[in-house]
Amino acid sequence: MGKDVRFLSELKRGQSGLIDSFTDYELSLKLLEMGCIPGEPVEVIRIAPLGDPIAISVSGYMLSLRKNEAATVRIRI
């Protein structure tokens, strides 16, 4: 398939992909509950002026999370 898998934290503003999997079990429970489900499309909408946190669009709304939290989410581009 050759699909490019990257971490959500590595995405630039305007880049998008599908949620693939998580690396942090505890945090993943919170993210799942908030609608970050594997297979769900996400797009990085905005990066805070100080470089962190980021705002993503997922499941039809805007969610903000820190870079280190985004670094636990694998994204298929």
Binding site: M34, P53, A55, L63, S64, L65, E69
Partner: peptide, 11 residues
Amino acid sequence: EKSYFVMELPM
């Protein structure tokens, strides 16, 4: 303890 920030940005 870890700190979470995950937060909705409402319209």
